[in-house]
Structure formats: C-alpha cells, structure tokens
Design a protein around this nucleic acid. Structure first.
Lengths: 176, 176
DNA sequence: TTGTCATATAGGACTTATCCTATATGAGCC
DNA sequence: GGCTCATATAGGATAAGTCCTATATGACAA
C-alpha cells in the first residue's frame, strides 16, 4: 500500500523521546495516533526487528523486576532518518474510499437503498465526531508546540468527519 | 490492506453495464473513479483473472478486426455478488494519514518547518480543489440517479479538500 | 489451586497492491 | 524501412498489513 512506510517513522518518532518495548509502543500508538494510523501488533514487532537490523534502533533486553522485555532506543542514525523524513515534502498520497465505489454504482440498487447506506454512514460519522470532540475538549487550545500539534492531528479528524456529515446531508438532499 | 477488496466490486460494477477488456477497464477507471480508487494495471488483470476463476466473470476472446483482446462479462453470479456487496452496510474503514504522523512528531523539527510542510500541502490541496471544481462544474446538478451519484462522489472529494484547506489554515493560525 | 486477565514477544499464511519488466501488434509518420 | 505511440496482456519480486496462532509469566480473584 503505502510506499511511504510511515509505521517505521511513527515508531522512530515514539522512540525519539523514550525507550519503549513493542508492547509499550502498541499501547502508546493506540492512545494517540490510532485514529490516523491504526497499528497491528504483529506489524509493530516486525517493523521493530527490521529497524534494529537496519541500525536505526537499538535493543536492550531487560529482565529486571518484571518479566523479560525488550527496550528499544532510537540510534543516532535512527534520529537522523526521522529528521530527514519529517522535513521531506512528500506528495499527497491518494486514498481509497470503498464507500465511494458503492455510491458510484448505487444506480444498481436504487435511490432508496443508497439513502440507507448514507444514513448508516451518517450515524457512524456522528459517533466519531462526538469522540473527536470529546478528546479535543481535553486538549488546551494553546500551549507548547507538541500540544498544539497533538490537538491539530485530532482536529484534522474532526474537520474531516464534519465535512463527511455535511456531504452526506448534501447528497441525501440531492437524492430526494 | 483493505480487507474489503473493493477493486473486485468496482470491476463488477463496470462490467454490470458493458463488457470490457482489461485495457478498457483501466481507461474507464482512470476517467471516473480514479480520484477515490486509483487502479494499478497489473492489479486489474490479476483481479480479472481471479473473478473469472470464481465464476463471477466470463471471458470471450475476440480477435476480429483489431488485435486480439479479451472481453469480460459479469455473470449472473457476479451481478448477484455486486448487488449483495452494494446493499451490505460495511463499517467505516479506518484510514492511514502519513501526513498526520509528521504533524504529530513535528515537535522534532520546530514550528517553522512544520509550517513549511503545511504550506506545501496547502498548495497541493488547492490544485486538487480546482481540479474537482472544474469537473464538478461539468456535471449537471440534477438529472438521473447515475448523474447525481457521479456528481456526489466528486463532491465528496471536493468537500474533503475544502476541509483540508480550512484545517491547514486553522493549524497555521494556531502555530503562530 | 485453578482460572483468567494483562503483560510481552513473535512466527506463518495470506491478501492487496505496487513497481518493473516482457511481449506483441496495429497505426501513423518521416 | 524504421520510429514511436497506443493498444493489449501478464508475470516476478517486493512491500505493507491483517488475522490467527503459539508461547510464557506475573498478578489477582474465586
């Protein structure tokens, strides 16, 4: 899919501030970037292994007080790679929207059934909007750069669901 | 990636009205659904082969007046599969946004460089908006169901780039 | 003590898609 | 006659991710 391999860089991003285990990483990602980069657990471990093989990440096996785990650190090369990737201006990647395929061929099932699809999607979008609004409300509107950026990534999701809801209503109107 | 295998159904959708060759299909997709489902040529042929193996599509080798080509038809089973898929309400699939990963870790490169990324993206988004506006202007606002739906898929793209531009401006403002 | 939950890691099989390459022919041009 | 372009099909290698499964331990409760 993505020629861009962002999981690598997301991992490097997390490891740039704190050493983490694969398990920690998964939790951290689920708690922060999940809405724009859902991460598969197996994929995290595989990518981590690969990053180590490439010398961008170092491992340190810790079997101290708790059970055995592998702490991962970004190396200097890893930090350089992250910095480089962050500064590079990549072209907008094209997205795949299965729902629009359905819309496009909606003529096969008729306007009424298309409206049903739109209404179902509207419900999901509203739920998502509420979730985003809730999280956004918990992040201060201004503050340090990281806070502003964290809030911005959330607002991106929010603005897009809002647009989606408006589009659904507009389309529903056009179908009447 | 997509557990949803929409290319199969996009192909069935096209074949539901006209028999097409792989080449025709590619052209048809590039001219219509490309902005929400860019199709790889090799992938079209592979999917076509598979659909034939599954009995959802029939082939007929034509080597008449022009060079040899393979015309593909949707079978009754294919049409049933399409109809079923179109009517099924699938949950909203989660999207991956590499750009938001960059935003999230923008603290590593500083506000000024983050703004540069945002401005570059804004330029691309504006170009895309102009493209969508141009195409949308060429489709009548009302008409038969297919026209309305065709326009709706385009407007979806338009509404989302519009939202993206607004979000970029909002974020640029927050970064000042 | 037995069971189950959270922690912790990872391999295997598979899917979808991308990129590159190979092949072949008809049409039009210079 | 040779050039390139559009038509037309398709394999090979590789990437990225998903789903399922296996393993093992510490903690806590019934």
């Amino acid at each position: 899919m993505s020629r861009i391999m962002s999981l690598r860089h997301a991992i490097l991003g997390f490891l740039s501030t704190t050493p983490l285990s694969g398990y920690d990483l998964r939790k951290a990602m689920d708690a922060s970037v999940q809405h724009f980069w859902p991460a598969d657990q197996a994929q995290i471990y595989r990518t981590l292994t690969r990053l180590v093989a490439e010398g961008l990440v170092d491992v340190q096996e810790v079997d101290g007080d708790t059970r055995q785990r592998k702490l991962h650190f970004a190396t200097a090369a890893g930090l350089a790679e992250l910095d480089d990737w962050l500064r590079t201006i990549h072209p907008v990647e094209d997205s795949r929207e299965p729902f629009l395929i359905k819309m496009f061929f909606g003529g096969c099932i008729g306007a009424a059934d298309v409206c049903a699809l739109l209404l179902a999607r509207r419900g999901e979008a509203e739920a998502l909007r509420a979730t985003f609004q809730g999280i956004a409300a918990s992040i201060p509107e201004s503050g340090d750069l990281n806070t502003v950026l964290r809030r911005a990534t959330l607002l991106s999701g929010l603005r897009h669901v809002e647009a989606e809801i408006l589009w659904i209503d507009e389309t529903l109107e056009a179908l009447k």
